[in-house]
């Protein structure tokens, strides 16, 4: 996009953030009563809901059951009104299927699936409003929902995106920055061990710059972890008060 300055000379981005700054994150666990686990997250103007059912018996054909671990089943859908231009279908298009697969990969790396052999865990995420970083918001929401369902995990999974503009790595891209078409990196991190659960990079980037972008994304993911940890502690604290402990 010519004419739009993504990073000013003073080092500020279009929405007034610094290069490594995240958008405001607000989250809540236990949004719905009927699901086993649910969570809602807002990252700036991106809003996502995640719901978890399971572990339960395999639905549909039994041949899908895995003898040594649980099957993680993910569906990504984004509301028809979530984007600027109306979408015709909420799920089933190529992008949604790809997102579903990526989420599945991410959570197979984090959930201790070997504890529930021959069973199934469903993770459904729904984007209500999309303003860049939908993958990251979905992963963060799904992490909270899996925790809410009480499914054992190796660690939190925290995701964040990063980009590269004018020799500077930017964390947590908004829609405007994504649409400008520069290199983009999506990263899902297990913060305690520093392991990477998912890494995806599109567009061309010089090898020498990769380290900076990766570090920016990892730092942002660690910041997300601090925030999510606070949300979980707050939720558990409230729940224990309600139980009268």
């Amino acid at each position: 996009m010519a004419g739009l300055e993504l990073l000013s000379d003073q080092g500020y981005r279009v929405d007034g953030r610094r290069a490594g700054e995240l958008r405001k994150i607000q989250a809540r666990m236990g949004v719905f009563a009927q699901a086993d686990g649910s969570a809602y997250i807002e990252q700036g103007n991106t809003k996502a809901l995640a719901v978890v059912y399971g572990p339960h018996e395999i639905r549909g054909s039994r041949s899908r059951a895995l003898p040594d671990r649980a099957l993680v089943n993910c569906q990504y859908s984004s509301a028809t009104f979530s984007t600027g231009e109306r979408k015709r279908r909420p799920h089933g298009d190529r992008k949604s299927c790809e997102m579903g697969l990526q989420l599945r990969q991410t959570f197979e790396a984090a959930i201790l699936t070997q504890l529930h052999p021959r069973s199934q865990i469903d993770i459904y995420v729904q984007v209500l409003q999309a303003d860049g970083g939908t993958y990251a918001a979905c992963v963060n929401a799904a992490t909270l929902a899996v925790l809410d369902a009480g499914i054992p995990m190796r660690d939190f999974v925290c995701a964040c995106s990063a980009g590269f503009v004018d020799g500077t790595a930017l964390a947590d891209l908004s829609h405007v920055e994504e649409a400008a078409g520069g290199p983009q990196l999506a990263l899902a991190l297990l913060p305690a061990s520093g392991q990477i659960a998912l890494l995806e990079m599109d567009a061309r980037l010089h090898e020498d710059h990769l380290e900076w972008v990766l570090e920016a994304a990892a730092q942002a993911a660690r910041d997300v972890h601090t925030l999510l940890d606070r949300v979980v502690r707050q939720h558990v604290h409230e729940a224990s008060i309600m139980l009268g402990d």
């Binding site: 719901v51 059912y53 509301a79 909420p90 089933g92 469903d122 459904y124």
Partner: peptide
């Protein structure tokens, strides 16, 4: 009008 019965409501609504 379009009504999306999302899988959030119940796993039965997954896919189609």
């Amino acid at each position: 009008f379009f009504v999306d019965c999302s899988a959030n409501a119940t796993p039965e609504f997954e896919g189609r």
